[in-house]
């Protein structure tokens, strides 16, 4: 299966990645190869086979409804490039 440039542009946009023309061309090739490889699997007849979602058979790994304070606000904010004493700061996401 051949991926076109438009698809690479769309995927890059969804992942918020800026790619050079060179990178785009490389991804067209690499992604096409991966998809062709995966297409191989389509040759198998899976009629009547339930999709396998989890490789592991465990279910119901649940947590009781209890509050645990794992980290402090100071710690939470410590990695943020922009912050004040209480909030994360980000570029304005709406215009007034």
């Amino acid at each position: 299966m051949k991926i076109d440039k438009e698809t690479v542009d769309k995927i890059a946009h969804l992942a918020r990645l800026v790619l050079t023309e060179e990178e785009k061309n490389r991804f067209i090739e690499e992604l096409s190869e991966i998809l062709s490889f995966m297409e191989k699997l389509g040759e198998l007849d899976t009629t009547g086979v339930e999709p396998l979602i989890y490789m592991n058979e465990h279910v119901n790994v649940l947590r009781p409804d209890e509050v645990i304070q794992e980290i402090s606000r100071e710690e939470a904010l410590s990695n943020a490039p922009l912050k004040n004493e209480a909030y994360f700061k980000v570029s304005k996401v709406i215009e007034k």
């Binding site: 939470a76 004040n84 909030y87 994360f88 700061k89 980000v90 570029s91 304005k92 996401v93 709406i94």
Partner: peptide, 8 residues
């Protein structure tokens, strides 16, 4: 005026 604040 310049930033949006995020409260998680």
């Amino acid at each position: 005026p310049k930033y949006s604040y995020i409260d998680l």
